[in-house]
């Protein structure tokens, strides 16, 4: 594994909503073999538009925690999704969630 030059920056700096959306879009562009070529916006829906499943949301959560080197309460987000009839999630909601919980101290 090579050195990840952005890692320290991601750990220390404040995450803006724009940056989080760019980061999530970058991760989803090559997500476990399911490449998504369309533009990802705040309105893009995780299941209906990207064709992903709830287990992908779990794994995306794990990936984002590694990427940002800090924990996020993804179990709470999953519980919220579980209460919805369509169980879907927009990128805007995900960005908002990550932005709101970025101050949890890294391990």
């Amino acid at each position: 594994m090579g050195v990840d030059p952005g890692r320290k920056d991601r750990m220390m700096s404040e995450l803006t909503r724009d940056r989080i959306l760019d980061d999530v879009a970058g991760i989803l562009a090559d997500f476990h073999g399911r490449e998504y070529l369309g533009t990802i916006s705040l309105e893009t829906r995780f299941f209906a538009d990207l064709g992903l499943a709830s287990i992908d949301a779990v794994v995306l959560g794990e990936t984002l925690q590694n990427y940002y080197q800090r924990p996020f309460p993804f179990a709470d987000l999953m519980a919220r999704m579980g209460q919805r009839t369509d169980r879907d999630l927009t990128m805007g909601e995900l960005v908002e969630f990550l932005h709101a919980h970025q101050d949890i101290p890294a391990n």
Partner: peptide
């Protein structure tokens, strides 16, 4: 299915 069922229903939490 998969393990996400246990997070969605909050059994895990």
């Amino acid at each position: 299915g998969d393990l996400s069922i246990w997070l969605l229903c909050q059994a895990m939490q």
